[in-house]
Design a protein around this nucleic acid. Structure first.
Length: 614
RNA sequence: GGCCCCGUAGCUCAGUUGGAUAGAGCAACAGCCUUCUAAGCUGUGGGUCACACGUUCGAGUCGUGUCGGGGUCACCA
């Protein structure tokens, strides 16, 4: 955020910063001038002032007291006076309570911020930023079953983190690796051959991913049945699991696939295409997109040459049976197999190859993997192997791990069919949105299409906000019995605030006012809620930076909720259209426009759209 | 068993590099629509921040230990 030059008598290098950064800089400079002591921003804290005290920002003095050998009260008074005197355009007052120096930001500074930024839709987005090239891999589905609630969390987090990193000034490539081969894919194929009688998405009027998923479940039912039968015939559990005919058939199919047997490849292509079509529909609906899609069927042989090289350099070693390993016992990660005795590769081998390919293809500075936390160990090992193999990019791999979504009734398991299906839950949310909207009856003049669009905006808004407001790394519990709320700390709450602001602006325009009148406001007298709102708007910048640094959309969700909440208080307390004076009206119009812009922008980072009416 | 993560109000979650009397929403209760949309606003009740010790001016936050929950330690992906 920029302060207007000339308005603020800070040094030129202090201009391009947030309020907090400005306060830190001003304090450091003042301390140097008063006491001739050098401090950095890490030596003391600048916080927001707690509501029960007067002031906007607070400098915590305790840490400075030791060095300066002054009482906190004396230091606070000295520094406060100096700051207000020398930065009079920025600070209008101060008070000291115990070790806390509370500072008030000058009203002029706040109205100045409004004047400059209220109409900017790109407010707080970083355009001069680090410009790092970052790949965010997310979603990465299996083609043997439809997406469920856990995948939605992954998709929303991945998409949103990518957008947040863009807003923080980086170039971002969204990618996905489709897990389209392997024994699990063959399971659905075998079951389809055995039980489907040629059923297709068209013949059953079903989404392709759902159809294929059904046969994956059916495989497991049949497998279980066969194993039980064999155990009854006297086989041990292990033997039965190995000998079950359906499993033997599946393993044969995997071999046939690897040898490109035409009828297997044809079936594989056919069933995969059904799934892709289904996925595309879901992705489109939930607003996910990818700049590049990798397919495991193309990448599963990657990494073999790297392993050979590693062997030649003695970084890896060969066991008597010919299998190739890496020794990570120094890192307390044990030994890890990289190539089987028969020369075929494992999951890790491919990940090594793909990591390298990504960095080389895109010249990345950083590669982020949005993957569930059950793979923390795998990703740790991957990173360590790459490091040992001498790849400099190893340090730039980042596993953005997120916790499982669990149900109140227990874990979701695709194999057992105990999942909350992604399409189902999205449909439910949209239906709920429709129900609420109809009950309230505020948009009776909407056309069918307008209503449909509104329901999608609200239903998906509720859904996305619900999954994104929680810190990704924490696992979360979902109660399928209770539908996701539309009141309180929710997407629709924030969307509602936006819609109400649009309503205000419509009214003011309808009265013949120009809401973009060019005159500059110079009011120094702001009411408490007006002050709080501007200060809250200013913090959007911090929210983006923090969210990008921590890679968590939850920071944006919390920020925008608090902003909306604050605006709602302001809304019920003060009138915009019937403000006490023309000047107040102008101020509040700008405040409303800027709030709406920031809400729209922040929700956009979460993949949530805003309605003009609801 | 080894390693990793988590434990904050009845429930779901915030709580910035340690800072002032730990905050929201839901649920409960009480108010507020003749005034820009009540999907809203205002208020009340609700806490041994799992437990113990330690570090220090100060600990929900850092350290050690204990208890409880989860994950992982595949020639699966």
């Amino acid at each position: 955020m920029r302060f207007q030059e000339g308005r603020l008598n800070l040094q030129p290098d202090l201009i391009d910063m947030t309020f907090i950064q400005n306060i830190q800089s001003a304090a450091i400079k003042s301390l140097k001038e008063i006491f001739d002591e050098d401090f950095t921003e890490k030596d003391f804290q600048v916080n927001e002032t707690k509501p029960e005290f007067t002031g906007d920002y607070t400098i915590v003095l305790f840490a400075l007291v030791k060095t300066l050998k002054l009482s906190p009260e004396k230091l606070g008074a000295t520094l406060g006076e100096y700051l207000v005197k020398n930065y009079s355009d920025f600070f209008s007052g101060f008070n000291v309570i115990k070790g806390f120096l509370n500072l008030e930001i000058a009203g002029k500074q706040l109205t100045g911020l409004l004047n400059e930024h209220y109409a900017s839709e790109a407010f707080a987005k970083n355009t001069s930023g680090p410009h790092k090239k970052i790949m965010v891999e997310y979603s990465s589905p299996n083609t043997n079953k439809p997406l469920h609630l856990g995948h939605l969390r992954n998709n929303f987090i991945g998409w949103s983190v990518a957008e947040i990193l863009k807003a923080d000034g980086n170039e971002v490539i969204k990618s996905s690796i489709v897990n389209d081969r392997g024994i699990h894919i063959c399971k659905s194929m075998i079951a389809w051959e055995m039980f489907a009688n040629g059923a297709t998405p068209e013949s059953t009027d079903q989404k392709g991913d759902h159809l294929v998923g059904e046969y994956y479940v059916q495989f497991n039912n049949e497998y279980k049945r066969e194993v039980e039968g064999l155990i009854n015939d006297g086989l041990s559990k292990e033997e039965a699991e190995k000998e079950a005919p359906i499993m033997l058939k599946t393993q044969q199919m995997l071999l046939d696939w690897e040898q490109s047997k035409p009828e297997v490849i044809d079936l594989w292509k056919k069933m995969n295409s059904w799934v892709y079509k289904g996925f595309d529909e879901t992705y489109k609906r939930i607003g996910c997109d990818f700049d590049h899609t990798y397919y495991e069927s193309n990448t599963y042989l990657l990494g073999k040459d790297i392993v050979q090289e590693g062997l030649e350099k003695n970084i890896l070693f060969k066991k008597d049976d010919g299998s190739i390993w890496i020794d990570l016992s120094e890192e307390k990660l044990g030994e890890k197999l990289l190539l089987r005795a028969d020369g075929t590769s494992v999951y890790m081998t491919q990940d090594i190859g793909l990591a390298k390919q990504k960095f080389e293809e895109y010249h990345l500075d950083k590669s982020i993997y949005v993957i569930g936390d059950e793979q923390l160990h795998h990703m740790k090992v991957l990173k360590e192997i790459l490091k040992k193999l001498g790849f400099p990019f190893a340090d730039e791999l980042f596993h953005l791990s997120y916790g499982m979504v669990e149900l109140t009734t227990g874990k979701m398991k695709s194999r057992e069919g105990t999942v909350v299906d992604a399409d189902d839950i999205v449909n439910e949310m949209i239906e709920t949105a429709a129900k609420h909207t109809e009950e309230l009856g505020k948009v009776k003049d909407f056309t069918e299409d307008e209503l449909k669009e509104l329901y999608e905006i609200l239903g998906l808004g509720a859904m996305k906000f619900y999954l994104l407001r929680v810190d990704p790394k924490k696992r979360m519990i979902f109660n399928p019995e209770e539908s996701i709320d539309f009141h309180g700390f929710t997407g629709p709450f924030v969307q509602y605030t936006y819609a109400r602001i649009q309503s205000i602006l419509r009214k003011i325009k309808a009265e013949g006012n120009d809401i973009n009148a060019a005159e500059t406001l110079d009011s120094n007298e702001l009411l408490p809620l007006e002050r709080e709102l501007i200060i809250s708007l200013e913090k959007y910048n911090n929210a983006i930076q923090d969210a990008a640094k921590e890679m968590t959309p939850a920071i944006i969700a919390n920020y925008v909720y608090h902003l909306a909440k604050l605006f709602n208080s302001f809304y019920s307390e003060h009138s915009v259209a019937n403000a006490e004076s023309q000047e107040k009206k102008q101020l509040r119009v700008r405040l409303s426009i800027m709030t709406a812009n920031v809400i729209k922008s922040a929700l956009q980072l979460l993949g949530i759209k805003v309605p003009d009416r609801m």
